[in-house]
Every structure is written in structure tokens, then in C-alpha cells.
Nucleic acid binder design. Structure first.
Length: 524
RNA sequence: GCGCCUGUAGCUCAAUCGGAUAGAGCAACGGAUUUCUAAUCCGUAGGUUAGGUGUUCGAUUCACCUCAGGCGCGCCA
């Protein structure tokens, strides 16, 4: 990465300094800047401006065409063309992860109803993270946890049973906290068809129904999981007992009002959490902790990542406490909260209530909005931010819709390369790039090279949206280049150089869209 | 009442570990096509970063307070 090359050069002069190297704003001279002079000056008690001048004069490297100092004390570097050409043709693979094992668990929707919109967003984010981590040298697994037992599934079974009574001409009395959705009726119909009467049979059928549903919908969404783990298997494997004894063994439990409490306040929680209720049922927390024990024992992961919805924020401390009670460092598990999604149509925020029949589920959204658009839109925002999903914009097949803006750049390049081929000019395997002198060409080269830095930042911060932003920038700079310069032209060498450049651009667009799980059409 | 998240241009959002005159897209306005895809490009305008205090060479970023919105709040997940 260029950033690292520059940092290395600077560290050579100032070995122990904390050096930041970043992009120069677009309207300023130069490509990268450093804040080094501020640090040095402040430590030595000298004037930052003079210090910057002094440092700048000491830096000598063929990768820079120019080094300039700007007030108050920024040192800006302009990369030499030779270095840019060399970087563009260099074929490097980025290995940040060095094979470290990461496990990302996401979606994990309860098998009691369809996948909702927040889970859909989590699916897009999680899947993209998996792709990103794999591309940057991590061994990343995608996992889905199925809560196939417990109180919620009991309520599901009872709700379905009540609907069967209704379908048979009786009256349905949905239990308190039960499931009212229309989709329950469909399950009830199938239960009647199969002639299921027994509570357990109905429960199993309903649970399997929704697990299949989740698998189908996620497949349609282009999201693949490596492992589906069931809560029931965590129990069967004895993990729950072991988790419980690990916690009690450390004296972290006490009984109050007949319930067993886990002293999560030991780990920074604002209150202790019940793990076994007074009527001897386990709360979700205990099997969840057990499940994480299972994860760690299965593959000795270097890092666990859980992606949760905003309604689970209050449970983070408890879960991290569980990890520590099991003997793991708190940072073994990172919990990402994907914030809520608001669906907007005709300028109004739609109610997400299932009863209102609007966009409650992923499958309903998929029926109306193309998958590429949904995924792109979900990945346009930092996952920790609330996201507004504008249906009208999503359905527009025009320049306003950034998905097509990026895809169109790729299709355009493809078209140019075809056109060149018709004129008997192929994309060269390697090119003499010294013909590429125009601003738009150099900008494009820098974009292509910066892809690695974007991947690095996105992977380290676990934020795929950074890739999305990069894609839009890259497409913009390509379109600007296209508008101003012809690729297929009379000057053979220039034409070939430009073909090489746009072919590399197209490759980047493809790589980037692949990371987002968005298709990359040859023609539009 | 307590905890967590959020507040940036008319709208939706960026701004990496505290760095430059806070940037994009959309909407608005004005232009560009005898040319490889106009699903494109160029330009103009738009800001007390909710408000205040503090920390320092420098604050959208950190700390504290106030205001506003969202989510959650022991034996549901």
C-alpha cells in the first residue's frame, strides 16, 4: 500500500513517531499528506511551520514527484508518474488476516416468522464482511444460529394450533405474546394437511417450516452460510451444563426470589442477569453463552463476531461477561449492532408493523426491489447508523440510482473494449503507460491503486460501506475520464495504454461489486 | 428515572488515531451530445457540524452539561 510505503519512508527519519498518512483533499495539491510535523514540533516545542520545512527537505525518494509544505504544517506528497505506472501494473494480493480464523454469526432470526428488514440488512452486511475478510487473507466462516427450542417456539406452536382451530371453523385464541401474523395461517393450513395433532409434532413442523423459509429467502438474497447451528444441539452436546458450571464455579451466581442470577455486573453490566428463572427455565443468555463456548471449542477461532439488531444492545455486556466467565478475553468476541432500517415511499416513512402489510419482511422487499439494489443500498451506510431505504429511488433505473451508476461504468468499459476489438485493437497484457498524462487518467490510476487501502480500512473497521463509497468514487472518475478522452483513437500506443487502464478499472469494479454481493453486468 | 445509539447543506449521508477552507449524492438552477452506451459529464448555489462549557498548536471527532429523536430496562428472544 502506498500509505505504508510513505509511512516507512517517514519512520526511517523518525523511528518512534506516531505518523498519520492520509489523502489530501481533492482541491489541494498533492496525493497524500502527513501530520508528522505537528507531532515533532509539539514534542520539541518548536514552530510547526519551520519544523515541516525542515522535515520536508530531508525526505528524498523516487516515489515522489513533489513534496510541499502547507500551512499550518502539512507536508504533502505528490506521487511520481513512474511510481504510479509501476503500482498500477503490479499484481499484489492483500494479506491482512494472515490466515487468522474469524467466525461471523449473523441474522440468526428466530424460526417463528419471516426474516424482517433489520435482519435483511444484517444479512447484507454480514455476507459482505465474510467476502471482504476472505479477500484480505482471513479464514472467515459464516454462521447462523437457530433458536429451535424454548418459550418462543412454544408460543409459535400454540399460535399455529389456535389457527388450525380457526381454519376448522372454531375460534383462535392466540396466547399472550404469541404470533398474530397472517403467515401463521399458512403454516396452520399445512399442519392440517399433514394431519398433525400432537403439540410436539406441530412445533417441530412449524420450526422446520421457518428454517426452510429462512434458508430459501437468504439463498435468493445471495447470502450463504457455512454452518447452521441449532440451540437444541448445544443442549445435546452438554454445553449448557458446562457453561453453567463454569459460571457457578467462579462464584458468579446467586439465587434471589428463586431465580439464578449471573453476576454480570462483575464485567461492567449495569445489572445482574437472570439465567435460570424461578420456574426452572433457562433464559436465552445461558444457552447463548454455551453456544459461544461451542464456537470456540469447535475451531479455536481467533475472533468471534456477532451481528445483532438494535433491540439487543442491552445484552452486550451480559454476553461479554459470559465470554470472560468462560475464561476468554472480552475482546475475543466483538458484537456489532446493525441499526434499524426505515422504509420510505412517496416521501413517507412506512410503518413496519406486520399488520399494516407493508415491508415487514425480506421476501416482500425482494418481490418489489431488485436484489442488487437492496444489497447496495444496505451497504451504503455505516452499519452502526440508522438507514433510510427510499423505495422510489431504489426503483429508479436512472442516474439517480447509484447502483446503476456503478454498474453502468462497467458496462461502458466493456462496450469500449468490444469496440476496440472490432477495430483490431486488443487490450495489451502489459502496456507502456507513459502516454497516460492527463489529469483524468492519473486520477483513475490513483483510484485503482487505492483499492487496497480501502479494503484494508473496510476489513479492519468491519465496515463494508467503505467499499461502496469507493465504488461510487471510482465510477465517477471513470465517467469523467470517458467524457473527456477517447479510448479508441488513431494513436495506437495511446489507445492501448488507455485500454489497459480501463480494463484495470473494470476489474476493480467487478472485484468491488463482488464484495458487495452485487452483480456486474457486461451490458445495460 | 437509568443505560446504549443518534443529531452535519432543503433531503439522504461521508469525513480513518484529534488535522487543511467540513465533502458527496439527490432535489434546485445554468450549461455540454456530428464522437467508444446521455443509466453520462461540467458549472452555480446551499453550513453557527442541535446548543453551551472545557481540554490544545488544532475539535464534527475527546470530556462535562442542556435540548431533541430512537432502542432497551432483571426470571421474553
Amino acid at each position: 500500500m502506498i500509505r505504508d510505503d510513505i509511512r516507512t519512508i517517514l519512520l526511517d527519519l523518525f523511528p518512534n513517531e506516531d505518523i498519520a498518512v492520509d489523502y489530501v483533499p481533492r482541491d489541494k495539491e498533492g496525493d497524500y499528506y502527513t501530520n508528522l510535523a505537528f507531532r515533532v514540533a509539539s514534542r520539541e516545542g518548536k514552530d510547526p511551520w519551520d519544523t515541516a520545512q525542515r522535515i520536508a527537505s530531508r525526505i528524498g525518494s523516487p516515489i515522489f514527484k513533489q513534496i510541499s509544505v502547507y500551512r499550518p504544517a502539512f507536508i504533502n506528497f505528490t506521487l511520481s508518474e513512474g511510481y504510479l505506472y509501476q503500482q498500477l501494473t503490479a499484481d499484489t494480493t492483500l494479506d491482512i488476516g494472515r490466515g487468522r480464523r474469524y467466525l461471523i454469526e449473523f441474522v440468526s432470526a428466530n424460526p417463528t416468522g419471516p426474516i424482517n428488514i433489520v435482519s435483511a440488512r444484517a444479512a447484507a452486511v454480514g455476507d459482505s464482511l465474510i467476502r471482504l475478510l476472505r479477500k484480505t487473507g482471513y479464514a472467515a466462516d459464516a454462521e447462523y444460529y437457530v433458536n429451535d427450542m424454548g418459550r418462543q417456539t412454544d408460543l409459535l406452536a400454540e399460535s399455529v394450533y389456535q389457527r388450525t382451530l380457526e381454519l376448522k371453523g372454531g375460534r383462535a385464541e392466540i396466547p399472550e405474546g404469541g404470533y398474530h401474523g397472517e403467515y401463521i395461517k399458512e403454516v396452520a393450513r399445512e399442519v392440517i394437511e399433514k394431519g398433525l395433532e400432537d403439540d410436539e409434532d406441530i412445533k417441530n413442523y412449524a420450526v422446520e417450516y421457518f428454517i426452510r423459509n429462512h434458508q430459501d429467502v437468504l439463498r435468493n438474497f445471495g447470502v450463504a452460510f457455512d454452518v447452521w447451528t441449532r440451540e437444541s444441539d448445544i443442549y445435546k452436546g452438554g454445553y449448557v451444563e458446562r457453561a453453567l458450571s463454569a459460571i457457578t464455579g467462579k462464584g458468579l451466581t446467586y439465587i434471589e426470589d428463586g431465580a439464578v442470577f449471573f453476576r454480570t455486573t462483575e464485567y461492567g453490566d449495569d445489572k445482574d442477569r437472570v439465567i435460570i428463572t424461578s420456574d426452572k427455565r433457562n433464559t436465552y443468555l445461558l444457552p447463548d453463552i454455551a453456544y459461544h463456548l461451542n464456537k470456540m471449542e469447535r475451531n479455536a477461532y481467533d475472533q468471534l463476531i456477532d451481528i445483532w439488531g438494535p433491540d439487543h444492545q442491552g445484552h452486550i455486556k451480559g454476553m461479554l461477561g459470559g465470554m470472560q466467565a468462560l475464561g476468554y478475553d472480552a475482546d475475543t468476541l466483538r458484537i456489532l449492532i446493525v441499526q434499524e432500517v426505515k422504509i420510505k415511499e412517496h416521501g413517507k416513512i412506512l410503518s413496519m408493523s406486520k399488520r399494516a402489510g407493508t415491508f415487514a419482511s425480506l421476501s416482500e422487499l425482494l418481490e418489489r426491489v431488485p436484489r442488487d439494489v437492496i444489497r447496495f443500498f444496505f451497504l451504503m451506510r455505516s452499519s452502526s447508523q440508522h438507514l433510510e431505504f427510499d423505495i422510489d429511488l431504489a426503483l429508479k433505473q436512472s442516474d439517480e440510482n447509484p447502483v446503476y451508476y456503478v454498474q453502468y461504468a462497467h458496462a461502458r468499459i466493456n462496450s469500449i473494449i468490444e469496440r476496440a476489438a472490432q477495430s483490431g485493437i486488443e487490450v495489451p497484457r502489459s502496456a507502456n503507460l507513459s502516454m497516460l498524462k492527463e489529469d483524468e487518467e492519473l486520477t483513475l490510476i490513483k483510484d485503482i491503486i487505492r483499492f487496497e487501502e480501502t479494503l484494508h480500512d473496510a476489513a479492519v473497521n468491519l465496515e463494508p460501506y467503505m467499499v461502496t463509497y469507493y465504488m461510487i468514487d471510482l465510477a465517477r472518475d471513470f465517467h469523467a475520464f470517458y467524457q473527456k478522452h477517447r479510448v479508441v483513437c488513431d494513436e495506437r500506443q495511446l489507445c492501448e495504454s488507455r485500454l489497459y487502464l480501463i480494463q484495470r478499472t473494470a476489474a476493480r469494479i467487478k472485484e468491488g461489486l463482488d464484495l458487495l454481493g452485487v452483480s456486474c453486468p457486461e451490458k445495460m
